[in-house]
Structure formats: structure tokens, C-alpha cells
């Protein structure tokens, strides 16, 4: 009897713990916007981001977006927060949770499209930013990139570097957003090596380095000696394969030369997601934030290439520069879809 009494006491104690936790809630729930009414000094707006299922540490897209927020964080003296999603169904509540406590919520990736539409309508007085998809709402700033232009440049580099005359492309999911990379890359390769063979494979996922490695090794076995990837975290596997078998990998989204232990990243196609997220925060702090769709290409320095491993020879760089100029002044229009690629006529400069 004594024993069951003791048990009961423990249960009551536990319950009070739960109750204590739940009862305190009204007070913090009511405080998400304490920043607005502060007098004289302009209050710093808070901001945070929600990652897709790839999460931080993908050495790619999410990390790049986070870098932009951290930069803005140091500049404006606000610590950014991050919420990493584990399931696609969580995008919506995660965006909602974030916007309850932050003034600006950034969602990274085109998979956020539907969730962003729903949540931005639910919190009309909050600001939202989304990268890689266009959401038409008065409180959402959408940033798109002309990845095909950046991919074109690394395609030129790949075409000038290959010795076997075979290059590879490893994509994530076969979607128009990724086919943009493929089209630009192929156009770039064909511009400098019209007879080159280009192997195309899609892993079907973005978050599985093993699959990336598997596909890259298969392409290597088919004589590819330069492989460009646009496959999120799968690319880590592509670069590992390059280390193992001693061929060149080309990184994507940000400078990925650090992933390779043997300096086998030839170059990286840079997509300045960090510039995008930084711009969102800056315009929010300036008070110039508005709902709009911004497209960043070579001209706007939103895309480009980097050579973190110092592997691109100077003469290759000069050629790349020529193409870059031609794209910026409109002499070359880089194809952004497979259909446009078919109509594309390679011009040698």
C-alpha cells in the first residue's frame, strides 16, 4: 500500500511538472513582437531560417544561406536562429513557428513553395524570404538565380580540361530547376569542345552521398575525367569518388574545394545564396523590404565560378572570362532548359 502511495506521489509530482511547463506558456507566446514599439533607437528586426531536409552541414545550399544570415547577424547585432526540418510535411509548421518569434523567416529551396504560400498568408504582418522559387505575395521576397549561366562557365572549364573528351553531369532530382544546370553545363562544354561526350545521370535524391558516389564511379568507369554535380549533399559523394579515383570534380552552389582531401575539386559553380539571404535581411533592416521576385545572374554577380583549390590554369581563366563577357553583354544566350539546349548553337570565341 505504501508503495502505491509513493508511486502516486511521484505521478502527482510529474503531472505538476507538466502543468508548470504548460501554464507558463501564455506569457512567452504573447511576446513575439516586443521589438516593434521601442522608442528613439530603431529596433533591430529578428530573423531566422528554416532548412529543407538536407539541413545544415550539406556544404552547399543550406550552409550558403546560413552564411548570409550569419554575416547579416554580425553586421546588425542580431543572432539568427535556424530550424532544421526532418520531414517535408514539417515545412509549414516550422515556418509558422519561426515567424511567431522572428520578423523575417527565410525558407531555403524550391520545395518550400506551397508551405511558404500558406504561411505567408497566415502571418501577413511578418516578412518572408524564399530562395529558388517565386511566391507571389505582398510580404514575400523571392530570389531566383540564373544557374545555367554559372553552369555554362564551369562547362567551359570542364571542356578545356578534359583529356579523355568525356565529361559527366550528376543531377539530383530530374526537375526543371536542376535541368537548368544540365543545360547550361552542356552548352558550355560544347562551346569549347563540340565533339565531347557528356554523360548525364540523376540520383533521384538530394541527401544521399552514397548514391552520388556510386553514380560518379559509374561515369568514371565510362571514361569521364571531369564530373560536375548539382545534387545537394549527393555531391559530397561525387567529390569523394574524385579523391578515390583521381579525376576532377566540379562543385556547386558554393566553393566546395574544402570537401576534397586531395584537392580534386577543379572549380565550383557559385550561387550566391548568401548574397540573397543577406540582401533580404538588409532590406528588412533598411525598411525597404517588399514582396517581389528578384533574379540574379552573371550580370548581377549572383552566380559565377570559384577556384578555391587553384586548379584552373590562367589561360583557361582568360577563355572563361571571354565567355563571361559575352553572356553579360547578351552575345551568348545560355539555354536554361533542355529544349533551349537543342536549339542552342555553340559559338567558339
Amino acid at each position: 500500500m505504501k508503495k502505491s502511495l509513493a508511486l502516486l506521489l511521484v505521478v502527482v509530482m510529474m503531472m505538476s511538472l507538466f502543468v508548470a511547463c504548460t501554464q507558463k506558456t501564455p506569457e512567452p507566446v504573447a511576446t513575439p513582437e516586443p521589438t516593434t514599439p521601442a522608442p528613439v533607437e530603431t529596433p533591430k528586426k529578428t530573423f531566422g531560417m528554416v532548412t529543407d531536409t538536407g539541413g545544415l552541414g550539406d556544404k552547399s545550399f543550406n550552409d550558403s544561406a546560413w552564411a548570409g544570415l550569419e554575416k547579416a547577424g554580425t553586421e546588425f547585432g542580431v543572432k539568427p536562429v535556424v530550424l532544421q526540418s526532418t520531414k517535408q510535411e514539417d515545412y509549414e509548421p516550422n515556418l509558422g513557428n519561426m515567424s511567431q518569434q522572428a520578423d523575417l523567416t527565410v525558407g531555403v529551396g524550391f520545395l518550400f513553395e506551397n508551405a511558404m504560400k500558406a504561411v505567408s498568408a497566415q502571418y501577413p504582418d511578418k516578412s518572408f524570404g524564399v530562395v529558388d522559387t517565386a511566391v507571389d505575395a505582398p510580404n514575400v521576397m523571392s530570389v531566383l538565380f540564373k544557374e545555367h549561366e554559372g553552369s555554362f562557365l564551369v562547362g567551359v572549364i570542364a571542356g578545356l580540361t578534359t583529356k579523355s573528351n568525356v565529361v559527366g553531369f550528376v543531377g539530383g532530382m530530374e526537375l526543371p530547376t536542376i535541368q537548368k544546370f544540365e543545360a547550361g553545363f552542356r552548352a558550355g562544354v560544347l562551346s569549347v569542345k563540340p565533339d565531347a561526350k557528356i554523360l548525364i545521370n540523376y540520383t533521384g535524391v538530394f541527401d544521399n552521398p552514397d548514391k552520388g558516389k556510386e553514380v560518379a564511379l559509374a561515369q568514371y568507369a565510362n571514361k569521364a575525367d571531369v564530373i560536375y554535380h548539382a545534387s545537394g549533399a549527393c555531391g559530397i559523394g561525387v567529390i569523394q569518388a574524385a579523391d578515390d579515383k583521381d579525376f576532377w570534380a566540379i562543385g556547386v552552389d558554393q566553393d566546395q574545394s574544402a570537401i576534397s582531401t586531395k584537392n580534386k575539386v577543379l572549380a565550383s559553380m557559385i550561387k550566391r545564396v548568401d548574397t540573397a539571404t543577406y540582401t533580404m535581411v538588409k532590406s528588412l533592416q533598411d525598411g525597404t523590404f517588399k514582396g517581389q521576385v528578384v533574379t540574379l545572374g552573371l550580370k548581377e554577380e549572383g552566380v559565377g565560378y570559384s577556384d578555391g583549390g587553384n586548379n584552373v590554369p590562367a589561360e583557361v581563366k582568360t577563355t572563361v572570362e571571354k565567355y563571361q563577357k559575352a553572356i553579360i553583354d547578351g552575345t551568348i544566350v545560355v539555354p536554361g532548359t533542355i529544349d533551349e539546349l537543342k536549339a542552342f548553337k555553340p559559338t567558339t570565341l
Binding site: F18, C21, T22, K24, T25, P26, P28, V29, N97
Partner: peptide, 8 residues
């Protein structure tokens, strides 16, 4: 954790 799951 509890706020996020049961708080409101």
C-alpha cells in the same frame, strides 16, 4: 519543447 508542443 513543451511550449512548442503543448504551450498553446
Amino acid at each position: 519543447m513543451f511550449k512548442g508542443s503543448l504551450g498553446s
